[in-house]
Amino acid sequence: MTRVSVFSSPLLLGFDHLERVLDRASRAGNDGYPPYNIERIGPAELRITLAVAGFAKDDLSVTVEDNQLIVRGRQTDDPERVFLHRGIATRQFQKAFVLADGVQITGATIDNGLLSVDLSRPESVTPPRQIAIR
């Protein structure tokens, strides 16, 4: 089956980067674990909060790669523990959020099983530019 791109129009020049970003976003949005919230905490500030109960601070990593915020969690089993019943699974996860150009990570905190990542989205005003005709 041939995939037809919305950006294949000759009027949309230079949007191949945007197409790749949209592909990554659609693939990353399919996994529901861990659950998360995105909230506005100021005029240009956002907060992503992930429910990571059972993960210690050392089990989590927050990185930015290619305009993507990537949160990874990996729990390790303690071989000394003997379970009579195991209903809480240890699992790993990777959650990716596509960031717009200019968005910066201002910090990350963990409290009561909730990992909060704060982002800053500065206002960008691009004035119109006059192009000289030669």
Rank of each mutant, 00 (worst) to 15 (best):
G29N: 13
P79E: 09
L18S: 08
R72M: 09
D77R: 14
L69G: 07
H17D: 15
Q75F: 05
K57G: 03
T76H: 11
N30Q: 15
F83G: 00
P79L: 12
A28T: 05
E19R: 08
V62I: 14
R40H: 01
D59M: 04
A56M: 07
D66C: 00
D59L: 04
V71W: 07
R86D: 14
Q75Y: 02
R86W: 03
R27M: 10
D23N: 06
R24S: 12
H17S: 09
L12H: 06
Y33W: 09
T63Y: 04
G14N: 04
I38N: 01
D78Q: 10
G14R: 04
G32A: 12
Q94V: 07
N37G: 07
L46F: 05
D16P: 00
S26H: 11
L84Y: 06
G32E: 09
Y36I: 00
G42F: 03
L22Q: 11
Y33S: 10
G29I: 02
V82K: 13
V71Q: 10
A89L: 11
R47N: 02
G87Q: 07
S26F: 14
D78S: 12
N67P: 00
P35Y: 01
D66H: 14
K57E: 15
R27C: 02
N67V: 00
R86A: 11
K95G: 06
V82M: 07
A53P: 01
S61N: 08
A44P: 00
Q92V: 00
A25Q: 13
T76K: 08
T49Q: 08
D59F: 03
R24D: 08
Q92E: 15
P35D: 08
V52G: 09
P43Q: 10
H17N: 09
A28Y: 09
R24A: 13
G14D: 04
A28W: 04
G73R: 09
I38R: 01
V62T: 13
I70Y: 06
D59N: 15
H17V: 03
V71H: 06
L84M: 06
R47E: 09
L60T: 07
N37K: 06
L84A: 08
V21S: 11
N30E: 12
P35G: 03
L18K: 02
L60H: 04
R72N: 14
R91Y: 13
H85M: 08
V52M: 06
N37W: 08
R20I: 00
T49F: 00
K95F: 03
T63A: 13
V82N: 06
F93T: 01
H17F: 01
D23E: 14
E39P: 00
G32H: 10
I41R: 11
D58Y: 01
F55Q: 06
G29S: 13
F93E: 10
L60W: 09
L13V: 12
Y33F: 12
E45L: 03
T90K: 15
R47Q: 13
D77L: 14
